[in-house]
Structures are given as structure tokens and as C-alpha cells.
């Protein structure tokens, strides 16, 4: 199955999507797609099949988000902590990722026509050369698309991201590119793997777990939290609509995500420098 599903909604679903669209629509949803393995046990299929169905569900969820008018989705695909799983499971997951990125490149026309920009957030140095190359190609191919944004957290943990960011910022101060006084929340936000993207309005975690497991800890500071019992492969459009509706119900109480302010020319050129560096790094993987 490809990256964005194309199965038409039923009349009832379409109607409800239109009703929910009367309220404020989030611009960015973050998802922890949890429960693939528990689903596999429940449905009596192989673990690998559970992960594959999880990926297919992502493709569907992306379609629903586009129908709802949510332009950006960030998903937790693989945590650095997941490397601790059995070798065979890690291999399966890496193989699945390799297949899917290859597929993405094969489907070039479709993805470009949809205008989807794909970004990977995470520590790419932990991945195999082959996977890194595929990812870099996909990211570079779609980097100028701006109709929809899909960020995939892969080999990611928030603490790893935060410390790497602090390191870059400290280096910047030491080299004199920025001054110590320039270091503030906005600068850190801007230098994270998520860069200039806005923070998520909603964070969803499936499968009944009620923690964030080192995912986007900085970025979800002001997001609406939606923990749901359903296992990820069983997630359906009604769950998504319910999350958005709950968000709408307390919209006025939520702190809105402010734009990250770049306070002076120095900071601006520092941030641009980091982005250039990131781009060069990706190019070097190919």
C-alpha cells in the first residue's frame, strides 16, 4: 500500500467531516502509533504483519487529515529506545522502512502531484547506509512541496533532539555566530529537528498508554492531549473526528502556538546556516 490512501469516504463520513470543519481545525497533529504488536497478538497474525497494517493505517490517517484540512502530521515511527528490541524485530522494522521509502521513490509522480513534503526527524547517524540514502532521496525530492507535511520521527527521542540542539547552540555561541543573550525559547525551538514547523495542536496516543515516551516533549508543551484506548491498526476516522471535536470543545482554554520569533539578523543567519548544513548533510548521504 502506498503512502497516502485513496479510498473514498462514505456519505456519512463525508457529512461528518464537513460538520466538524465548521469548528477550528488544527494545523498540525502529532501521533504516537502504538499497539501494532498487541494488535498482532489479538488478530493472531505475525508481529511483522501488525507493523505492516500499522503503516497502512498511517496512509489512511493521512488521507483523513487531508480531507479534514489538517495540513501537517508528525508520527512516531521508531524510537532510539526501540533498538533495544530483539534483533529480528528491529530488522523487520528496518526492512519495512526500507521497502516503504523505496516505494515512495517509485511513486514519485503521485507524491509530487499531492504536494506532500516529507521530513525525517531523528538521529540519522544511527541508521544503515542504505536506509539513510533512501530517506535522503525522499526528503530532498519533496522538500519544496507545501500542500501537506508529513514528519516521520525515526531513530528519534526528544532528549536526544534537545541535547543535540543545545550542542549546536552552544557551538554557535562559542564561534561567535550568536551571542549568549540570543539564546531563548524561540531560538531553541527553531534549532530543533522540527525547525521552522509549527508545534502540534493535538497529540494523540493510541492503545491506552498515558505517557509520551520521549516523543516531541518540547513541542507538545501546549498541545491538546488525546489518549485513546484503540490499538493503532484499528484506529478509524471516527476516532480522529472525536479527537478533533474534543480539541474544539476546549479550544479557547488552550494556549495557542505562537510563531517562533527570530529576533535579529544574527540569529537569522545562524538559523539559515544550520538549515544549509542539514541540507548538505542529506546530500552527502546520497
Amino acid at each position: 500500500m502506498s503512502w497516502i490512501a485513496n479510498s473514498p469516504l462514505t456519505y456519512l463520513q463525508q457529512f461528518c467531516v464537513n460538520v466538524i470543519k465548521c469548528g477550528p481545525i488544527p494545523k498540525h497533529i502529532a501521533i504516537i502509533m502504538d499497539g501494532n504488536r498487541r494488535y498482532a497478538t489479538k488478530a493472531k497474525v505475525e508481529k511483522a504483519e501488525g507493523h505492516t497494517r500499522g503503516f497502512d493505517k498511517l496512509a489512511e490517517a493521512l488521507q483523513w487529515c487531508l480531507e479534514l484540512g489538517i495540513p501537517e502530521v508528525t508520527v512516531y515511527a521508531f524510537s532510539i529506545e526501540n533498538f533495544k528490541r530483539s534483533q529480528s524485530e528491529v530488522d523487520t522494522l528496518m526492512k519495512l522502512a526500507t521497502e516503504k521509502f523505496q516505494k515512495l521513490l517509485d511513486e514519485r509522480e503521485k507524491i509530487m502531484a499531492e504536494g506532500v513534503c516529507i521530513r525525517i526527524i531523528g538521529n540519522m547517524s544511527l541508521l544503515s547506509q542504505e536506509l539513510r540514502k533512501l530517506i535522503a532521496e525522499a526528503v530532498l525530492m519533496t522538500k519544496d512541496n507545501n500542500r501537506a507535511f508529513l514528519n516521520v520521527a525515526f531513530a528519534y527521542t526528544a532528549r536526544d533532539e534537545m541535547v543535540n540542539t543545545a550542542r549546536k547552540v552552544v557551538e554557535g555561541v562559542e564561534k561567535g555566530a550568536i551571542e549568549a543573550d540570543d539564546v531563548d525559547e524561540d531560538l531553541i525551538s527553531r534549532c530543533l529537528y522540527t525547525g521552522d514547523r509549527q508545534d502540534p495542536d493535538i497529540i494523540v496516543r493510541t492503545s491506552g498508554e498515558v505517557r509520551f515516551s520521549d516523543y516531541l516533549l518540547w513541542q507538545i508543551s501546549n498541545s491538546y492531549i488525546c489518549f485513546t484506548e484503540v490499538l493503532w491498526p484499528e484506529f478509524c476516522i471516527w476516532h480522529l473526528l472525536a479527537c478533533v471535536f474534543k480539541y474544539q470543545r476546549c479550544y479557547n482554554d488552550l494556549k495557542k502556538n505562537n510563531v517562533k520569533i527570530i529576533k535579529n539578523e544574527r540569529v537569522k543567519s545562524f538559523v539559515e546556516g544550520l538549515e544549509q548544513e542539514k541540507l548538505m548533510q542529506l546530500k552527502s548521504y546520497i
Partner: peptide, 23 residues
């Protein structure tokens, strides 16, 4: 423990909540 109907962290210290269970 989050109070009230709006379930959000409202800027809670991010580094510290890696494994915190939220009810």
C-alpha cells in the same frame, strides 16, 4: 495529574516528563 476539562501540559517542564504517566 491534570485538573479540569482541558487536557494539556500548559508549558510543563519538557525534559522531566519522558516516562511520566498522565491521568
Amino acid at each position: 495529574v491534570c485538573c479540569g476539562k482541558t487536557f494539556s501540559l500548559f508549558g510543563y517542564p519538557p525534559w522531566q516528563i519522558r516516562v511520566t504517566e498522565f491521568l
